[in-house]
């Protein structure tokens, strides 16, 4: 009888431990899709498609400090014109 109890009680303990442990980095929560926009934090102007993504067309504020290359959906043409 004693013989048979050991693996089961050990299993129970293992299960409990597996449940109690926290995962490194915390639980990952599923996020749903969302939409937002970023106005220029400097002058408040909206960000217009024809002005490119990298700089504010009005005050020159730098939205992105990089030069865009041809990626997946973002392309070279999305760089703001030189100013």
């Amino acid at each position: 009888m004693e013989e048979n109890k050991k693996p089961l009680s050990l299993l129970e303990k293992m299960k409990q431990k597996a449940r109690e442990q926290k995962m490194y980095g915390g639980e990952q929560e599923d996020k749903s899709a969302g939409m937002k926009a970023r106005d220029c934090p400097n002058c408040g102007a909206g960000r217009m498609q024809q002005d490119g993504l990298t700089h504010c067309a009005y005050c020159g504020f730098e939205f992105l400090s990089v030069t865009l290359t041809d990626g997946i959906n973002i392309k070279k043409e999305d760089n703001s014109p030189q100013h």
């Binding site: 730098e62 939205f63 992105l64 400090s65 990089v66 865009l68 997946i72 959906n73 973002i74």
Partner: peptide, 9 residues
């Protein structure tokens, strides 16, 4: 100095 969209691509 980059946004999510740029980094994720």
């Amino acid at each position: 100095g980059i946004e999510n969209a740029v980094y994720e691509e």
